[in-house]
Amino acid sequence: METLMSILIGVLFTIGTYLILTKSLIRIILGTSIISHGVHLLILTMGGLKSGGPPLLGIDTTTFTDALPQALILTAIVINFATTALFLVLSYRAYQELGTDNTAEMRGDENE
């Protein structure tokens, strides 16, 4: 299972990097969001993909699942949502002011 997750994480990082390297602001925002999803899966995979019971007293299980990676991922999802919303608002405002979402045109490069 870890091998499959590693391949999926690599695919997400590849797609996110490709989108970040484009010139459109919307694609850059989607790329950062996809990379953050890859990071979430990476944290979950590094925490261990094992089955077990919750770490509570009174439950008769021999293996327990670590809840810390899940808590970190939950916090990271909320932060990712807030930063994505901020990026979308900033890009919309930039599009209103400048009339384009192309980063080369925003810089004023005539060669592009």
Rank of each mutant, 00 (worst) to 15 (best):
M1F: 03
M1C: 01
M1G: 03
E2L: 06
T3H: 07
L4F: 12
L4V: 11
S6M: 12
S6V: 01
S6Q: 09
I7T: 09
L8V: 11
I9E: 02
I9R: 04
G10T: 02
G10F: 00
L12C: 02
L12W: 00
F13A: 15
F13G: 14
I15F: 12
G16V: 03
G16T: 00
G16E: 03
T17L: 15
Y18L: 15
Y18I: 15
Y18M: 15
L19E: 13
I20L: 15
I20Q: 10
L21R: 10
L21D: 00
K23A: 06
S24W: 03
L25E: 01
L25G: 02
L25C: 02
I26L: 14
I26V: 14
R27W: 02
R27Y: 11
R27S: 04
R27Q: 09
I28D: 03
I29E: 02
I29G: 01
G31H: 05
G31R: 03
G31N: 06
S33I: 00
I34W: 03
I35K: 08
I35V: 12
S36E: 07
S36I: 05
H37I: 11
H37D: 07
H37Q: 14
G38I: 08
G38V: 09
V39T: 15
V39F: 14
H40P: 01
H40A: 15
H40T: 10
L41K: 14
L41W: 12
L41M: 15
L42T: 00
L42Q: 07
L42R: 04
L42H: 04
I43M: 15
T45V: 05
T45A: 08
M46W: 06
M46N: 01
M46V: 09
G48V: 01
G48D: 02
K50D: 12
K50Y: 06
G52R: 03
G53I: 04
G53M: 08
P55R: 09
P55F: 07
P55T: 03
L56C: 07
L56N: 02
D60E: 13
D60C: 02
T61V: 12
T62G: 05
T62V: 10
T63A: 09
T63Q: 08
T65N: 08
D66R: 08
D66W: 01
A67Q: 13
A67C: 06
P69E: 07
P69A: 00
P69Q: 06
A71S: 13
L72R: 10
L72N: 11
L74E: 09
I77G: 13
V78Q: 13
V78A: 15
V78P: 03
A82I: 14
A82Y: 08
A82G: 09
T83W: 13
T84F: 07
T84N: 10
T84W: 03
A85D: 02
L86W: 12
L86V: 09
L86I: 10
L88C: 12
L88S: 12
V89N: 06
V89G: 06
L90V: 08
S91L: 06
R93D: 00
R93G: 01
A94R: 00
Q96C: 10
Q96L: 13
Q96N: 11
E97R: 13
G99K: 05
T100L: 01
T103I: 09
A104F: 04
E105D: 13
M106W: 00
R107P: 00
R107W: 09
G108C: 07
G108S: 06
G108R: 07
D109Q: 10
E110L: 12
E110S: 14
E110Q: 11
N111I: 04
N111D: 13
